[in-house]
Design a binder for these strands. Structure first.
Lengths: 121, 121
DNA sequence: ACGGGTACTTACCAAAAGGTGCATACTTGA
DNA sequence: TCAAGTATGCACCTTTTGGTAAGTACCCGT
């Protein structure tokens, strides 16, 4: 019954759209590592410490279906697959950089605020 | 034994930190509207169509505790409160701009990918 | 034949996020 | 006095997200 608003078909602003693509517990990390170059599944898993197979695969599939990453199956004798950023994905990573910078500059404030929320809940 | 990595205690990269602050179903929208200037609670609620009181208050509180927005209670006779961006919040919004731009440019691709996922699940 | 490595897949569960709706306390205007 | 508006709080429930643990199917070295 929340069916008003015939003018706004999807997103209120670009950021809104972008967040649909990059939010997910492991996605920023995955993008961070893939930005360094094509990476094999196992290698990626070892890089993104703490991720489970289920999660890694799931997030990779979503990124793939969003056109951000590309899966390459070499069809070789011992299984061999790798993941890389598409040009589209690379453009996203470029756009993310200022946000990375902001986060780096204020990492401590952010961490402090998170702690505050965690303890006083 | 997941106690490796003595250098980075919290975030893998700045983006990771930033996402803790801006993810939340209504936060980008809220920031988008607050960027236009201080806004009263009720006004904000009417702008962010579809949000419930609970959600709006919750997200505002989180943004406030993160130092992004400022709540001003004028202590007036008929209740009067408004919300605005702090300078810190304004710097965040500036850093978000490229991501907004990216999202705007690719809104259609993103929407298409979302549909694809929704229907084939 | 066995253990280990590759890249996944699946079923089941817990926790977090979000939504609905009612309650509060105070006001002003009809 | 009653309805409506202000800004919030709270209980309850559903949906979404994430985590655990196991299994698959293939290959390689010993």
């Amino acid at each position: 019954m929340a069916k008003e608003n015939s003018e706004n078909p999807r997103f209120i602003c670009g950021l809104h759209a972008t967040l649909h693509v990059i939010s997910g517990k492991w996605k920023p990390l995955i993008l961070f590592f893939l930005d360094k170059g094509p990476t094999r599944y196992g290698e990626l898993k070892r890089s993104v410490r703490g991720v489970s197979d289920k999660m890694l695969i799931q997030q990779l599939k979503e990124l793939e279906s969003d056109g951000i990453v590309q899966r390459t199956d070499y069809g070789e004798i011992p299984l061999r697959v790798d993941y890389s950023l598409t040009p589209f994905g690379a453009s996203l990573v470029r756009a993310m950089e200022p946000l990375c910078g902001w986060g780096e500059e204020h990492e401590e404030d952010i961490a402090a605020a998170m702690d505050r929320r965690k303890t006083s809940r």
